[in-house]
């Protein structure tokens, strides 16, 4: 019980805390973190990284955002339903991309012959991989944020499905 109350106290502290340094530094830092996450996402098919890594960076930045700025204040911008929606939307885009191949008479998730492949090494290449990476990024960042929110809300809703 003790740890739980400590945890709740921490949460309320987060809600009431006004730390100038933290806020200013984060205001400066957050755009760059998110830009870096976006970079990893968009270059997933060209360099190491991709949906999970980029999504994790963006998700971590969102957690930082809701920790630094009072959680109650940002709640209307980053509420639980939004993160769950992003989670589902990412997965559904993935499945939809898979079905595109099926509609053109190929197998599920076919890339070659369905999507324009482009020139290897350029940003707009590799057909569906880029779209899938972005969808995965949305899913992973949504999942990480919603896991954080679940734990913050005291684990009242405990399905942490992957």
């Amino acid at each position: 019980m003790w740890l739980f109350w400590q945890f709740r106290r921490l949460c309320t502290k987060v809600n009431t805390m006004h730390d100038m340094v933290l806020e200013v530094v984060n205001r400066l830092l957050l755009p760059f973190i998110q830009l870096f996450g976006m970079y990893i996402l968009f270059h997933g098919h060209l360099s190491p990284g991709g949906g999970f890594s980029g999504g994790a960076v963006i998700g971590a930045s969102l957690i930082l955002y809701s920790l630094t700025f009072r959680f109650a204040r940002v709640k209307h911008r980053l509420d639980h339903d939004t993160s769950v929606f992003f989670e589902a939307a990412g997965a559904l885009i993935y499945v939809a991309i898979g079905f595109v191949g099926l509609f053109f008479g190929y197998n599920f998730l076919t890339n070659r012959g369905v999507f324009p492949l482009g020139v290897p090494g350029q940003l707009w290449s590799s057909g569906m991989i880029l779209i899938i990476t972005l969808a995965l990024g949305a899913k992973v960042s949504g999942t990480i944020l919603s896991l954080f929110q679940e734990l913050l809300e005291g684990g009242s809703d405990e399905h942490g499905n992957p």
Partner: peptide
Amino acid sequence: IVISVSFTAFALALVVLLYK
């Protein structure tokens, strides 16, 4: 790693509940 992360996150949620 993704699987391990989801296992850990879920287990932590369970630990919070157990503590409660």
